[in-house]
Amino acid sequence: MIDLKNIEKYYASKGIKHYVLRHVTTTIKQGEFVSIMGPSGAGKSTLLNILGMLEEPTYGTYEFMGEDVTSLNERKRIELYRNHIGFVFQAYHLIDEMTVYENIEAPLLYKKIGGSERKSRIADLLDRFNIVAKKDLFPNQLSGGQQQLVGIARALAAQPSIILADEPTGNLQSAQAEEIMQLFQKLNKEEGITIIQVTHSEKNAGYGNRILHIADGVVKDDVAVSNNVKI
């Protein structure tokens, strides 16, 4: 699904290249649950941003679903966002002026999905995440865990094939974090959604089936995880 070849990212200042990523070459298949780990400043988030096409690599090629997306025009990139990619953020990034319902609805509106289908999909998601009662509340009326649930529901609304999550539990208590991670695992297992997350926590990484260890911009280690115990 994802094919990275020799991805490099650096910032040039005063003629010196400051590398954030070097020689990253990897393949992520449909249905994998990958955790990216590493110390602060290692380049985890940059890698995720590149995967999410929010940043362009300075060098290398990136193929998404067999298509070279290294430098894509805005229109095509947005098509991918609408149809294939869902984002989950550490700070949830719900839109404050929209209710829970409207937040989940937003991607469907961009995707131009008809009214009745929209309604049933949102109802389904609200139901699944147990937040039906909260649908008319605004984000600031929810707890962090609930906000992140809404954030994930929003990411799932457009039925993406991949979810990119940047420290999805970074702002949550461990109980809430666990809930979110289990949800991810379930989505991955039952619906076959590819998930790529950045995390600091070994425990969270344990929910996935593969870990990429990054240090100083280089992939140091790429290990498979067996997590059969967890479910």
Partner: peptide, 16 residues
């Protein structure tokens, strides 16, 4: 700003 950022990754065109 946040609204703009989120909407962009949710698939909104700049013109929208």
């Amino acid at each position: 700003a946040k609204e703009v950022g989120v909407k962009k990754v949710l698939g909104s065109y700049k013109t929208q």
